[in-house]
Each structure stands twice: as structure tokens, then as C-alpha cells.
């Protein structure tokens, strides 16, 4: 694949960006001999929703956990809100919010009590009752943590992550286990947090979620960031030919074209009106993503 413009050249070392919410240069983390993160560079701007994509084991979670201060690194520089997470103290932690994948779900405290306790650790927390409303658990204020359904528990996790009014929010696969309607409502919540000025780093396996939410997406494979782009441009998607499909003489036909409008007009003229089973498609985010993460294997296949 000959991706141009936006791909990240490895090894090029720019200074850390002090104005960025997150700035990473040459990050390295090894588990034994195996490098999980292998020279990763990344800048996340203040106020954006950034989605980090990548297959399991690509170094996504390791990178995020180093940014959260949960994990040590073996090399490189990291700044989150201008501070190295490895030495971030209470004041720094007050600026970040973490929504965990596991989440504390076995509590005998009510949702409101859990949020009230969490709020008591922060300097300038949001009102716990308002946060419950915000995540759609307003009617569950008195319900104990352990009585919640999976989706409700996930929303409680989000409430715990945002009650401290963080400037930087980490969301690890936030909508796993949500039904489609709950996901839509959750996306609205995340957008409203961005509108309040929160920077959000999102990891997800759902490409439609990345497409719907993210201002920019980054793809990690084998411990490196291979590309950063707005969702519509990832993997040269914006310039990729459209695929036109139709039915002619009882056979399914398809054609790649850079000018689908002209192509369909020609087709309509040739077939005299309505084109049977017509569709025009661009490669989806999933199509380009799957191509990107499969790249080294694809090179071995003769074209």
C-alpha cells in the first residue's frame, strides 16, 4: 500500500509538544525480551477526541496505561498535561480521569455514595447527583453497585471517571456490552464532555465508534503508531476509488472508479433509466483498518 502524506515516519524525533494534552516520543516498553511498545511517537491536542485503534497485543493498552501512570516505561519521553506520568503526584492525578475496563462492580455502596466518595478525593469535583443524571443513572442513585446490569455498571464507571472534572479523560473500550441505543446515548455524552473542553483518549475495537466520535484516529501495530488521520482520510480512504455495483443481463457487475457520479450517469444512460441493484460504496474505516494491520502479511502475497 502506498499511503502518503499523513503516515508517521518512524525515528524522526521532534521535541515534546508542551501545549499538547499528551505528547509521547520514542516510547519503549518491553515484557521480557518482547517489545510491546517499540519507539512510539504521538501528540494528542487539547480538547480533541482521539481514538487509538489496533489489534490485541499491538501495544495499545500498554501505551494508555503508561500515560495513566499505572505502568513504568523502559525508554522514551511522555508528558500528560505537561507532567511525566511516572512522577505525577496528587495534583496531576486530579487533572486526569480514568474509566477502567474492569471497573469496581462488587460494591455494597449505592451509586450516589460511590460517586460522593470518589468526588471527595478531588479539588473541584462535579456534583455527584448531576453526574449520575449525565450518564443516565439518575434513577439508580440509591441502587447498590452490585445490583446494576452490565451496561449500567459501565455507565457508573464513566461517572466515576468524570466526577473529578478531569481535563484529560482515558476511556478504555467504554461501550463493550452496550445495546445499540445505549451506545448512541453514550456517544452523545462523550461529545458533550468534549464540548466542555475535556480531552479524550479512547481505545476501542468498534470502528464505527471511532468513526462516529473521534476527531482523529491513530493506528498502532507491533508497538508503533503507523498512521494518524481524521477518520475519513485514514489509509488514503478519502482518495480511494469508489466501488459501483449493479446488475446487468442477469449478472452482478462491479467497477472501481474515481468519478462515481459520471460513471453512474453513463450507466443510467446506457441501461435507459433505473439501474438494477445499484450501489456506490467507499471503503469503510474497517476496510482500510484491516488492510493496514495486515500490511506485512499482504506484502508476501504476489500481486
Amino acid at each position: 500500500m502506498t499511503s502518503t502524506s499523513t503516515s508517521v515516519a518512524p525515528g524522526r524525533s521532534q521535541p515534546l509538544d508542551d501545549d499538547a494534552a499528551i505528547s509521547i516520543r520514542g516510547l519503549v516498553k518491553r515484557y521480557g525480551e518482547r517489545p510491546a511498545v517499540d519507539g512510539l511517537d504521538l501528540d494528542i491536542r487539547r480538547g480533541e477526541i482521539f481514538a487509538l485503534l489496533g489489534p490485541n497485543g499491538a501495544g495499545k493498552t500498554t501505551t494508555v496505561e503508561i500515560c495513566e501512570g499505572h505502568r513504568d516505561r523502559d525508554g522514551g519521553e511522555v508528558r500528560v498535561l505537561g507532567v511525566d506520568p511516572a512522577v505525577g503526584g496528587r495534583a496531576w492525578k486530579a487533572g486526569i480521569g480514568i474509566v477502567l475496563q474492569s471497573g469496581a462492580g462488587d460494591s455494597a455502596l449505592s451509586c450516589l455514595e460511590l460517586l460522593g466518595a470518589q468526588a471527595a478525593y478531588y479539588a473541584d469535583p462535579r456534583d455527584p447527583a448531576e453526574v449520575l443524571e449525565l450518564v443516565g443513572l439518575g434513577d439508580k442513585a440509591g441502587a447498590r453497585g452490585r445490583t446494576l446490569s452490565g451496561g449500567q455498571r459501565r455507565r457508573l464507571d464513566v461517572a466515576l471517571g468524570i466526577v473529578g472534572r478531569p481535563a484529560m479523560l482515558f476511556l478504555d473500550e467504554p461501550t463493550t456490552g452496550f445495546d445499540p441505543e445505549a451506545r448512541r446515548r453514550f456517544w452523545e455524552l462523550i461529545r458533550s464532555l468534549r464540548d466542555l473542553g475535556t480531552t479524550i483518549l479512547l481505545t476501542t475495537h468498534y470502528l464505527d465508534e471511532a468513526e462516529a466520535l473521534a476527531d482523529r484516529v491513530g493506528v498502532i501495530t507491533r508497538g508503533r503508531l503507523v498512521e494518524v488521520a481524521v477518520p475519513a482520510e485514514l489509509g488514503g480512504r478519502g482518495r480511494a476509488p469508489a466501488v459501483v455495483r449493479w446488475s446487468e443481463d442477469g449478472r452482478r457487475r462491479s467497477a472501481d472508479t474515481a468519478t462515481p457520479t459520471a460513471f453512474v450517469l453513463d450507466l443510467a444512460a446506457r441501461l435507459g433509466g433505473e439501474v438494477p441493484e445499484l450501489s456506490v460504496a467507499r471503503p469503510t474505516l474497517e476496510d482500510v483498518y484491516l488492510t493496514m494491520i495486515a500490511e506485512p502479511a499482504a506484502e508476501e502475497v504476489p500481486a
Binding site: 495513566e68 501512570g69 496528587r90 492525578k93 486530579a94 477502567l100 474492569s102 471497573g103 460494591s107 478531588y122
Partner: peptide
């Protein structure tokens, strides 16, 4: 139990001393 269900990890990510 609190370590395996993530309660401790959650607390470690807050400014709780």
C-alpha cells in the same frame, strides 16, 4: 478481592493519597 476486581487500580488512578 479488591485487587482482582480493579477497585485498587481505580483508586490508584485518583488523587486519593
Amino acid at each position: 478481592g479488591e485487587r482482582s476486581d480493579g477497585t485498587l487500580k481505580g483508586l490508584a488512578g485518583t488523587p486519593m493519597p
